[in-house]
Design a protein around this nucleic acid. Structure first.
Lengths: 219, 219
DNA sequence: AATAACTTGGTGACAAAGTCACAGATTACC
DNA sequence: GGTAATCTGTGACTTTGTCACCAAGTTATT
């Protein structure tokens, strides 16, 4: 690892500030770019723990009949708690990962990763906070799936992925369906209804004119 | 904390073996018995982190309209990762807890809990393994809710809670419904169908003659 | 022992969501 | 410009969840 590289990593992971130069020079630490659609399948053995410097990685589960649930996504400055837990708990990595946007990743051999966590309080805290966030987000996901209608879940997704400035979203019904763990037809039908009510407009691969303020927020 | 008490705790939490006598004498560490139905509501501030010595505690989420999902249960020798994460990540405890069987609990003030984790490798590993298990179990739960029919989920529950020796289970439809995060009527209907097919027999508050080997396992 | 209050389970009608099997429409690309 | 791939729409159906009851059994109360 070169000095400029280290500086770049530290900009995204300030919790690694306490590492010495010798620690950075250990065998196996590297930065790689991973192309979109690169996939790691459930059950694979991992030699390196990734820290995401840039890009977007989706972590998901495959069901027995080949469908997917998105568990969470990782982007700049994030680690994968499931990988961390599998390293620290010495269990298999029980999910799949798919690179959605070309990503830049700091690869840390699992042994070194473990050592960092044990040795450096700042990094340890960072990892724990990631766990915390993830458990809460996952329980909220369970909550959502259980208690919210798709209409509300779609609305919330739209609100979260648009802004006051940009009231449109480039996404296909299929993508949105995978996103929310439902079927494409359900998305199509619901969007169509919402269009009839004047809450938004649908076009091929795009949702426009999203009336953020009028979308149902609860129930 | 007295010596016999410490020994009892260590029997359930061997990962605490490295604690010194002085550490055990710190202010605030205590063992309490908690009666059934004692409840901690979502959002409450916690002064102590519980380690379960004995009993059964259900951790669940309340939805906006008052229904519940069971996230997980804690029994002998277990800690609550959501509490651990809220302590370590300094966030609010975002779930509710309800004591199902009268429980014996080691209460550790959050500051001391944190210190133990930072200081003692064994305990730290134990906590991380709990995280790992929990994340995986929760993602399996998402998987189940999403992809498995209730019939299969009921079957799996029955198989898990009976044995070759004891083919009956004392549980009401309502309890089973809460367990699986569904409605009582759905359980009643499904059990009735399964009874007609000779897979089991239903009685008030009991399911008997469970044909474990004939219950559907997948799909 | 009679009554009331509570628990547990059963049912029918309906709504919401997921599944299946298509059929058009649009776009991409030789 | 024609073909393939992708994206969306639709109808029929199943499963699951919701609602509003009722009936039978259990426990408490007097």
């Amino acid at each position: 690892m070169q000095k400029e590289q280290i500086a770049e990593v530290l900009a995204r992971f300030p919790s690694l500030a306490a590492l010495t130069l010798e620690e950075w020079q250990e065998e196996g630490i590297s930065i790689t770019t991973v192309p979109a659609n690169f996939t790691i399948d459930e059950g694979e053995f991992l030699e390196n723990a990734p820290l995401i410097l840039d890009g977007l990685v989706r972590i998901f589960k495959l069901s027995s009949d080949g469908r997917e649930v998105t568990l969470y996504r990782l982007s700049t400055g994030e680690c994968c708690p499931l990988i961390a837990s599998s390293i620290l708990g010495e269990t298999v990595y029980e999910a799949s990962a798919c690179v959605e946007k070309p990503s830049m990743v700091l690869n840390v051999p699992t042994k070194i990763y473990k050592k960092w966590i044990e040795k450096h309080q700042g990094f340890r805290q960072y990892i724990f906070q990631s766990f915390a966030r993830r458990l809460i987000i996952m329980s909220n996901l369970i909550d959502d799936i259980h208690f919210k209608s798709i209409r509300v879940r779609i609305s919330e997704y739209l609100i979260e992925h648009t802004s006051a400035e940009d009231d449109s979203l480039a996404i296909t019904h299929d993508q949105l369906a995978i996103e929310l763990g439902t079927a494409r037809e359900v998305i199509s039908r619901t969007l169509k209804k919402m269009e009839k009510e004047g809450l938004l407009r649908v076009a091929r691969g795009q949702i426009t004119d999203i009336q953020r303020s009028r979308l149902p927020a609860v129930q």
